[in-house]
Design a protein around this nucleic acid. Structure first.
Lengths: 195, 195
DNA sequence: TATTGTTGCCAACAAGCGTTGACCAACAGG
DNA sequence: CCTGTTGGTCAACGCTTGTTGGCAACAATA
């Protein structure tokens, strides 16, 4: 075992590690935590199940590694650069982009629904990544957390309908139309005065 | 086996059947499909696991029976009785009520996230129960399905945050405040002109 | 009372799971 | 050329799962 933080000579096993992680993300996204078996993940990565244990310790450890997520949201400065009434729109577009590109988000959503550890991780993401955005643009900073939660509820709800439950009506709706509908909602949750 | 539709002499086993169903709903709601084991459900109902099989055929059959859901939404006439700009508010209140009272809804949400059969059942509910509401109040009936999907995305998103993931910020938000925030969103999704 | 169906428990099955440790092949440094 | 480390396979462990069939007690009917 070696510190993965410090840059050291690349190991021969790095490729295997990456293959396992990629397969794990795919399986977790498609099947959720319980039905994504280590054996299936190992088969996808074309290695032995025991390697997964060696490199990630346990199934929980593998999931923890696979669910490392950075939403890559704009920082406070970038937020204030654009017109205030445009934040909702650009945020919705960003989320949609993010979700389409990265199956890990779908995986986390699936796992969070049945696994306490997954739910906790989602909570951290809300607090650490969406919270600051709300704090930067909402009128009363004390209200930021609640507004962040509201934003999360609409964004996660659309992600659920579109990428997890795959409601045909939500899947077929063109990206631009989704944005047109959701943007005002997000905008209001962030910046409207208390109703 | 006997037709449960036709009214026949009540069986002695009806109590057991009901106990199993109640325990199943609780477990499915708390743990999701895979982690809610037949053995655990049977123990909760204080009977033998094999009884579950006898009365419901299989685990899937049990879930199908446990997830029979009627959202009890207002009919077209009732909808037109109240002022048109009040529909959003009363709908949100109704959904919140429904979710707080009936753990089956949480169960279905949890199961739908990882189980294809669960997802399909949610889809049917959207189509058969939310769809008509949208059709009754939205300006262009042809658009009703899409608007129903939007409504579902926000309602399910809040249910996810509040009852499944249990984000503290969403859980602690008082019921009335949730309604105040969501009502305008739902109202807009239902009745606003295409954005 | 004798018979027949219902209700329930018990013990076991086969399959699948996460996880472990022994073992082998290839490489690296001296 | 050895020797220790790394990358990897294999076979098995202990356990839990959904599911099944046999068997005893009871109720109902005739």
């Amino acid at each position: 075992m070696q510190d993965s933080e410090t840059r050291s000579k690349p190991r021969r096993s790095d490729a295997t590690r990456a293959a396992i992680l990629a397969a794990a993300r795919e399986r977790f996204a498609a099947d959720g935590y319980e039905r994504a078996t280590i054996r299936a993940i190992a088969k996808d990565a074309a290695i032995d199940p025991s390697m997964v244990m060696r490199y990630y310790g346990s199934k929980e450890g593998l999931f923890a590694a696979a669910a490392e997520i950075d939403l890559n949201l704009p920082g406070p400065m970038e937020l204030r650069m654009q017109p205030a009434d445009h934040v909702g729109r650009s945020l919705v577009a960003h989320f949609l982009d993010r979700w389409e590109r990265d199956e890990v988000l779908t995986a986390l959503l699936r796992v969070g629904a049945t696994n306490p550890a997954g739910a906790e991780r989602m909570q951290r993401i809300l607090k650490d990544q969406i919270g600051p955005v709300a704090a930067a643009v909402c009128p009363d900073p004390a209200e930021a957390p609640r507004r962040a939660a509201l934003v999360a509820s609409q964004v996660l709800g659309m992600a659920l309908a579109r990428f997890v439950l795959r409601f045909p009506l939500a899947v077929e709706m063109p990206r631009e139309e989704v944005i047109d509908w959701l943007a005002p909602t997000i905008q209001r949750y962030l910046t409207a005065p208390n109703p």
